[in-house]
Design a binder for these strands. Structure first.
Lengths: 249, 249
DNA sequence: ACCTGAACACCGTTCAAGT
DNA sequence: ACCTGAACACCGTTCAAGT
C-alpha cells in the first residue's frame, strides 16, 4: 500500500503516541523509527507530518503546556469584560528599575484575583501538568520558543503581575523565578534520587544520611511536601517584598 | 599501534573532554565516537576506562558537583573541632511530623554559621557551578544516585539544617526545595528562552509580550536578578516558618 | 497528498586480535 | 593492560517510486 484512501496518521495521533512513549520509557526511547513502529507505519512516514524530530517534540511539549490552567489570570467577575490590556511599550521588561508604574494593591474597576492567590493556584496547576510528564521537562524548560501555549502562559502571568501593581522589571523576574521553581520540582523526584539501597550511605562518609534509603519509599509525600513548603516560602517572601514596594514606591 | 607504553587515555582526560564537548555543543553532541575522535583514539578505546557511556556521564556530573562550596556547613571557628554529629536513627527524614528535636536558634557549644546565611552562600555557589554547565543539568537533576560528591552535598545541607534546629522532616523538604530552585535556575536561561525576533509576539495573541524580544539581549542580568529575587523570597519565607516553629514548637 | 523501501552517515557496544 | 578494526543492531533524514 502506498497512499491509503484515508490517512493512516495525523499530527494528533503522532503527538499522543510520542508523549506516551516518552512517559513510559524516557526521552531517549523516542526514536522516529520506534515511534513509527508503534503507529504501525514505516519510519519515513512521520516526515509527511513533521519536518524534523525537533518539530514533533515541540508539538509534544506545547500539548503538555496546554494543560496548565490560566483561568485565574482573567478577571474574577464571570460576566465581566476581558482583562485590561496594558499600554504596550511603556517600559522594558528587562529593566532593573521599578519604572514609572506605581504599585497599587488593587486595580480600580477590575475584579482581578489577588496576585499571590493567583500565583498559588497557577503554580500548582503548572506543576501538576509538568510532573505528569517529568521526562519531557528538560525540553520544556528551554523556554517558550515559538510555541503558542508557552507564550500564552508567559503573557498571562506577566500581564497579571503588572496589572496587580508589580513594576515590569520585577514582574519579569517573578515569572522567571516561578518557572525555575516549578520546572525544578517537576524535573525529577527529589526522594527517588536517593538509592533505596542502605549500603550506599556509609556512616563514615555521610554521617547524616543514615535514613536516606527510606526516601524513595516516600516519594510522593516528600516531593509534594517540599513543593508546598517552597511555594509557601516563595509567596510569603514575595508578599514581604510587595509590602516594601507599596510603603516606599 | 595496539598498546602504547604510556596509556593514551585516563579517566580524568576523558571526563574533561566530555564536559567541554557538552558545554560547547550540548548533551546530544556527546557520542562515544565523537569523543574518541576528539581524544585522537578510536571509539572502543573509551571502554577500557568506563564500562558504559552512562558511567562516563556520571563521572562528568560528579566533577561538576565537586565544584560546589560546602565550607559554610562546617563550624565557623577555624581551629574548632568538626561539626557535631547527630545521633543516627532518631527520626526518619521522610516524616511529616516535626519529631522530637526541639528547634533552637543556636546549637550550644558550636560556632555554626546561621542556617539562613549558610543557605545563601551555598545556593549561590551551587548555582554558579551548575550554571557554568547548563547542558548537563538535566542529568544532574535526577538526584545524587551513587555519586560521592552529590551525596556529600546532600549530607552537608541536611546535617547543617538539623543541627540548626530544623526538624528532620522539614530539613529534608528544605534540601529538596532548594534543589528545585537551583537546578531550575541553572537548567536554562529564562531570558534566552524568548526569541529575539519581534514578529513572534503578535499583540493580538500576546498583549503583554510587546517587549519580550528584548529579553534575550539582557540574558545575564534578567536571570541573575530572578535568581537573587527568588532566593531572597525563599529564605525570607523560610525564616518566617522557622520563627513560627520556635514560638510554638 | 501520503505512504513505501533503499540508502546515507551516523550511533553504543562487543569482541577477537595485537603488543 | 590498553589500544585497534570489524561487526551488530540501532539512529535521523533524504529520495525516488508508488497510488
Amino acid at each position: 500500500m502506498a497512499r491509503p484512501r484515508t490517512p493512516l496518521l495525523s499530527r494528533e495521533r503522532i503527538v499522543a503516541a510520542a508523549l506516551r512513549l516518552i512517559d513510559e520509557e524516557g526521552l531517549d526511547a523516542l526514536s522516529t523509527r520506534r515511534l513509527a513502529t508503534e503507529l504501525s507505519v514505516s519510519g519515513p512516514s512521520l516526515y509527511n507530518h513533521f519536518a524534523t524530530k525537533d518539530e514533533l517534540l515541540d508539538a509534544v511539549v506545547d500539548s503538555v503546556i496546554g494543560e496548565v490552567d490560566l483561568s485565574m489570570f482573567r478577571t474574577a467577575e464571570p460576566g465581566a469584560a476581558d482583562a485590561v490590556t496594558a499600554e504596550p511599550g511603556s517600559a522594558e521588561p528587562g529593566s532593573a528599575e521599578p519604572g514609572s508604574a506605581e504599585p497599587v494593591t488593587e486595580v480600580p474597576g477590575s475584579a482581578q484575583t489577588p496576585w499571590s492567590e493567583a500565583l498559588w493556584d497557577w503554580a500548582r496547576s503548572y506543576r501538576a501538568a509538568l510532573a505528569a510528564h517529568p521526562n519531557i521537562v528538560p525540553v520544556l524548560a528551554q523556554g517558550p520558543g515559538r510555541r503558542p501555549n508557552a507564550l500564552r502562559l508567559a503573557d498571562a502571568v506577566f500581564g497579571h503581575l503588572v496589572e496587580s501593581g508589580w513594576p515590569r522589571g520585577q514582574a519579569t523576574r517573578i515569572g522567571a523565578l516561578m518557572r525555575y521553581f516549578v520546572t525544578g520540582s517537576a524535573l525529577a523526584s527529589f526522594a527517588a534520587g536517593f538509592p533505596a539501597d542502605a549500603e550506599v550511605y556509609d556512616a563514615a562518609d555521610y554521617p547524616h544520611l543514615g535514613e536516606a534509603h527510606r526516601l524513595a519509599g516516600h516519594r510522593g509525600t516528600v516531593d509534594e511536601g517540599a513543593f508546598e513548603t517552597g511555594l509557601e516560602a516563595l509567596l510569603d517572601g514575595l508578599a514581604l517584598r510587595f509590602a516594601r514596594l507599596v510603603e516606599r514606591p
